[in-house]
Amino acid sequence: MDPLASTLFLIFLAFIGIVIFLQFIPLGLWIQSVSSGVYVGLTRLFAMKLRRVNPARIVHPLITAHKADLPLNVTQLEAHYLAGGNVERVVQALIAAQKAGITLNFQQATAIDLAGRNVLEAVQTSVNPKVISTPRVAAMAKDGIQLIAIARVTVRANINRLVGGAGEETILARVGEGIVSTIGSASSHKAVLENPDNISKTVLSKGLDAGTAFEILSIDIADVDVGKNIGAELQTDQAEADKRIAQARAEERRAMAVALEQENRARVEEMRARVVEAEAQVPLAMAEAFRKGNLGVMDYTRIQNMQSDTSMRRALAAPAGPASGNAGSGGS
């Protein structure tokens, strides 16, 4: 083989070897760690690659912690990374806590981070409390007037209760419940409007931050609006309901009266039918009496005279009318 070709081939192999070496050995991170006073060996960096750990996510936070005089090592950071934690955020939180004089160790920080909370934000909230606003809370005083209040709650994170403690939603729910209870116990809505600070004092005295990850510093009523007259609306609805009940009962009584009247009419018709049936039996009975000799011609004549006399008396007893007047004039 030509010496020049051999040299070029060796240079190519060397280049390939360097590329492979740099691919698995982050030489730049190693130089950066050595120059920063944090020695991380090439073997350790290669082992991180094999364990699917991004060496930059470990070396950079380690250098930051070293510059801040935090006693951390590669093993601790790598273990937290493999557990699914955010190494950069944990280191930043430890530095912020150290500068602010807050007691926070690496175990607490990693536990808070793995619990799904933002440990850096928690430290910042401990130093600089934040304000959270409640939604519009509607409550009714004893005089039936609705009041709508908005409160602003100033809270500070409690590092020791971040793991297992309730969040902001619980704080807002408890404050809203306290506002409803306080307004509901007021004798008049005017008393609430005159002294809205009584709401915050009453709610704050109930210890609503128990079992939460925060400490309530103050509760301030930002706005109180007068809503509807709920008491009057309830009375109106009750009166409407009573009217409908009364109408239903009256309709029931009317239906019963109509049914009773129809029943009486049916009884009258039945009685009339019986009378007609009985009158139809009279001629048959008289005929039977004639056949048996129990009734004579004179007896029948007296019966006819009696019926005529009865008809005349009924006609005389009837009130005078146009028909009777015409009849009288015709007879004369």
Score class of each variant (00 low, 15 high):
D2Q: 08
A5M: 10
T7P: 09
L10M: 12
L13E: 08
I16Q: 11
I18M: 09
I20G: 15
F21H: 04
F24Y: 15
W30M: 05
S33Q: 05
L42K: 06
L42N: 04
R51Y: 05
V53L: 06
A56N: 06
H60Y: 14
K67G: 13
D69G: 07
P71Q: 07
L72W: 04
L77Y: 01
L77R: 02
G85F: 02
N86Q: 07
V90Q: 00
A100F: 07
T103C: 01
A109P: 04
T110I: 10
A111V: 02
N118R: 03
E121V: 08
V123M: 08
Q124Y: 02
V127M: 09
I132R: 04
S133M: 08
V137A: 03
A138F: 05
M140T: 15
V155A: 00
R156D: 08
A157L: 04
N158V: 09
I159E: 00
T170H: 09
T170Q: 15
R174G: 02
V175C: 02
E177N: 13
E177G: 15
V180G: 02
S181Y: 08
S181D: 14
I183Y: 00
K190N: 14
L193R: 00
N195Q: 10
P196G: 13
I199E: 01
V203C: 00
L204G: 01
L204S: 06
K206G: 02
L208M: 12
F214S: 01
F214M: 00
E215F: 05
S218C: 11
I219A: 05
A222L: 01
V226S: 02
A232G: 09
A232D: 11
Q238F: 08
E240P: 04
R244T: 06
Q247E: 11
V258N: 10
L260H: 12
A266Q: 15
A266R: 12
A266T: 15
E269L: 08
E270T: 07
M271G: 09
R272P: 04
V276L: 10
E277Y: 03
A278Q: 12
A278C: 06
A289Y: 03
K292L: 14
N294T: 15
L295R: 05
L295K: 05
Y300S: 09
Y300I: 15
N305V: 12
D309F: 08
A317Y: 09
A320E: 11
A323I: 06
A327I: 11
G328D: 13
G330S: 09
G331T: 13
